[in-house]
């Protein structure tokens, strides 16, 4: 009888662990697919550089591919990483480049090794520099998304043409859609949009 009770308890905990583990452990997020919606067009080539300055990444507490937390049945946190396995900054760079290309704008990503770059690489081109000070989701019963991002636009001579900072912290229905919306809002802001698309 003790064995039966033990078996039942073990299977029950196993089931919970299976559910929680299946739901929370080993999760990834594909921010590569968070292509921002772009309104407008420019014939200029836009170079995109994304820098990750999240404090817990700079201090090496978390990997560059860390995107947030998924919580198990008791609120215990499991780290979520990028689906690509690449740094989050590269996933977001990919998404922004694809978003620009989707409306016919020529755009390329720039390696993070060029992190000090503050001017467009090509004649008549523009550099879109995005700095992530925060970008993290936290999902227990409802996903929560927190971000603090800065966009700066430079011309080929290194002159800053515009900039905008955006931050938020809110419950969302989808972290990927929230990420897409944050990037869309950032690039649609008056200062950045005018600098990029004029």
């Amino acid at each position: 009888m003790r064995f039966t009770r033990g078996a039942i308890l073990l299977c029950f905990v196993g089931s919970l662990g299976g559910c929680a583990g299946t739901a929370a452990f080993g999760r990834t997020e594909n921010y590569e697919s968070a292509w921002p919606a772009i309104s407008g067009y420019t014939a200029s080539n836009i170079d995109v550089l994304v820098l990750d300055k999240r404090p817990y990444v700079l201090s090496n507490d978390k990997k560059q591919s860390f995107v947030g937390l998924m919580r198990g049945g008791f609120g215990n946190p499991f780290d979520i990483y990028t689906t690509s396995g690449l740094p989050l900054s590269e996933d977001i760079e990919h998404a922004v480049v694809k978003g620009l290309q989707n409306v016919g704008i020529k755009s390329d990503g720039i390696s993070a090794s060029d992190g000090g770059l503050r001017q467009a690489k090509s004649t008549n081109g523009k550099l879109l520099l995005i700095t992530l000070t925060e970008w993290k989701d936290d999902t227990f019963t409802t996903p929560h998304f927190e971000f603090n991002i800065l966009a700066e636009v430079y011309d080929e001579h290194g002159m800053q043409l515009g900039s905008q900072q955006l931050q938020g912290s809110k419950a969302v229905s989808s972290t990927i859609e929230a990420g897409r919306q944050a990037l869309s809002d950032l690039l649609a802001s008056n200062s950045v949009s005018k600098a990029l698309l004029n």
Partner: peptide, 20 residues
């Protein structure tokens, strides 16, 4: 498929990548 995933699939909650 990459474009459909990025721009055509509504992802509510935290769907697993296999469903996406």
């Amino acid at each position: 498929k990459e474009t459909c995933e990025a721009l055509g699939v509504t992802k509510s909650g935290a769907p697993r990548q296999e469903f996406i």
